[in-house]
Amino acid sequence: MLPEVESWWHRRTYSAADWPPARLVEAKGGTSVSVVLPARDERETVGDIVRVLLGELSAVVDEVVVIDSRSTDDTAAVAARAGATVYAQDEILPTLKPLDGKGEALWKSLAVTSGEIVVFADADVRGFRAAMVGGLLGPLLSDPALVYVKGCYDRPLLGAPTGGGRVTELVARPLLNLHWPELAGFVQPLAGEYAGRRAALEKVPFVTGYGVELGLLVDLLELAGLDALAQVDLGTREHSHQSTEALGGMAAQIMLTAWSRLARQGKIAPMAEPSPYLTQFRRTNTGHVMKNRDVSVAERPPMDDLRPFSA
């Protein structure tokens, strides 16, 4: 690790325990806060998360918005009953061709929220605690030099206290250490809980698929510099885990996201575009079956670039 990154790690790593609700209220002042939950078929957890936010953090959070990403269950109704404002992903900015992915929901949320600080949190977290949002808000509310804060935590897997975050350890962390060593101090670079100042978030593009977290981290480093970024220890986070096959698709999109930024920043020589297809195999009763997937990564421009044309 670079010496300057180790110094950053000690100065810019906080704990959610440092930010009880009373201290958040004091730090908030007149700053407005929006919390965004992108959700697809998360009826089992989204209602509880919304109730925690509107209950324990009601004096800090000004709006809780759920972006329903084409759910096939009653996620939207559950979230609305709990008190959230709910938008269908494809109904936001309807003149644009709809795109797929979590990043699309996050990007579109900037068009329907108003907070000066925007918090993004996954809607599939079990045992959600108010500190998972309050901890992210604390550093941003108290230090105007910060523009972006990532959550970090332990991730249980199959009953073990750690072991989750396999794509982080096998793909994202090696990529960052190799090509953006300034970001090597982030414990959970792909964490789904993070917060930023709207003024910064609207100046960077959003990858619409699984590369959104890595893309934001790299782009905000370039925009604002390392010392404007921070992380907060949120303890433990439990959520549903995906299959190895699904993780392969996620890893491919993260690698494509990294490739696009390496090319954009002039860190690799011009070359042909990488293949957007991933071939995987499943064993059946008659042997292996080949499955080809399109893992291409679409990208939305900075919201600031769009506003003059959508007004």
Score class of each variant (00 low, 15 high):
Gly29Pro: 00
Ala191Met: 03
Pro38Tyr: 00
Asp62His: 02
Ala27Gln: 03
Ile117Glu: 12
Ile254Cys: 04
Ala269His: 01
Gly165Phe: 06
Trp19Ile: 04
Glu26Met: 02
Asp48Gln: 11
Arg166Ile: 09
Gln188Arg: 10
Arg166Val: 11
Leu96Phe: 15
Thr72Met: 07
Glu56Asn: 09
Leu54Ser: 07
Glu202Asp: 07
Phe186Ala: 02
Thr208His: 05
Ser7Lys: 14
Leu37His: 00
Ala252Trp: 04
Arg283Met: 15
Glu169Asp: 14
Leu93Phe: 13
Val133Thr: 11
Leu93Val: 15
Arg11Ser: 13
Asp124Gly: 14
Leu99Phe: 11
Asp124Asn: 15
Gly163Arg: 02
Ser243Ile: 03
Pro144Asn: 15
Arg40Met: 02
Asp219Ala: 00
Val232Leu: 01
Pro302Phe: 10
Ala88Cys: 10
Ala39Lys: 00
Lys102Cys: 13
Ser69Ala: 13
Ala123Asn: 12
Ala228Pro: 02
Arg282Met: 10
Val149Tyr: 07
Gly196Pro: 00
Asn292Ser: 13
Asn292His: 12
Trp9Met: 14
Leu110Ile: 09
Leu24Thr: 02
Arg166Ala: 09
Gly134Glu: 09
Thr244Met: 06
Gly30Thr: 01
Trp107Pro: 12
Met1Tyr: 12
His239Gln: 09
Thr13Tyr: 08
Gly211Ser: 07
Pro276Val: 11
Ala272Thr: 10
Ala84Lys: 01
Asp304Pro: 00
Ser58Thr: 05
Val5Gly: 12
Ala160Glu: 14
Pro302His: 09
Phe281Val: 07
Glu104Ile: 07
